[in-house]
Computed example of a mutant assay.
Amino acid sequence: MVDEKEGAFLSHIARRLGRSKPLIEAPQRKTVGVAGLVDMDSPQGKEELIEQFIINWNNLHGIAGTVYKSEIPGLIRKLVAEHSVQKAFGWNVTELSEYGVPEAVVSSGAEYTAWTEREDMIDLAEQCTLGITTCDFAIAETGTLALFASPEHGRVVSLFPWVYLALIPVERLVPRMTEVLSHATEHGMPSSLNFVTGPSRTGDIEMVLTVGVHGPGKVYAYIVE
């Protein structure tokens, strides 16, 4: 029930909206629960997810595509040459070793360091032009990477270098954010859960958009097929 003052206020709003009377009762909803959890048993096909992720990442001023495992060394050499990379930094994970990332960086004439929990890692990251990671999940709906912090997954690898490359195992591509949060809830939240959606963007009081002020200005995301 609403009192007289509340009723008068709601009636005023209703008239401004072109309604004859205010809507006092809550509208009926077909489903109840977190958006995105409904119909989770019917995911989109792999090719559709790949296409959706690439479109959304590119729309956010990133560069996305697909790459075969055998093509990754060539991709690394291209990025090292294009951005004049002298030092590169990567997560300490088996996938990057299997993809031949360290060898490709070194063969291009640059130094490569894998993340460890040494005290000088942050200082070293500030000197690197290129940061390379995999990801824990890639969200097709928004073109977003989910990065779970851990002893092998240093946060600064994706935050400090000007150029950032994510190599995404195709099986980690999911339709929605809710799958990532459900997984984290069920398996334990990491100390930090970072979501990356394109390059760093900052808008000042005059609404001027600047890219790369608080993080990477060039971001690449390639799905490994």
Rank of each mutant, 00 (worst) to 15 (best):
A14P: 05
E82P: 09
L96V: 00
K69D: 11
P161K: 10
K30V: 12
V208N: 15
L209S: 08
M40Q: 10
H153S: 12
S42P: 00
K46D: 06
I13N: 06
T144G: 01
V208T: 14
Y99D: 01
S108L: 13
A146L: 09
P22T: 01
S70T: 14
K30C: 11
V93L: 13
E179M: 12
V219D: 00
G154M: 00
V213C: 07
P216M: 02
V101S: 02
E71H: 01
K218C: 12
L181Y: 14
P22V: 00
I76H: 03
W91E: 01
V157H: 04
A149V: 07
V163R: 05
A146I: 12
L167C: 02
N92L: 02
L145K: 03
L167H: 00
S107W: 07
R201Y: 04
S11K: 01
E141L: 10
V156W: 08
A104C: 11
G217W: 05
E152Q: 15
K69E: 14
G143P: 15
G109D: 08
N92C: 06
R155E: 05
Y112T: 04
L49P: 03
E186R: 14
T210P: 08
F148N: 05
E179P: 01
K5T: 09
E98H: 09
A149L: 09
K30R: 15
K69Q: 13
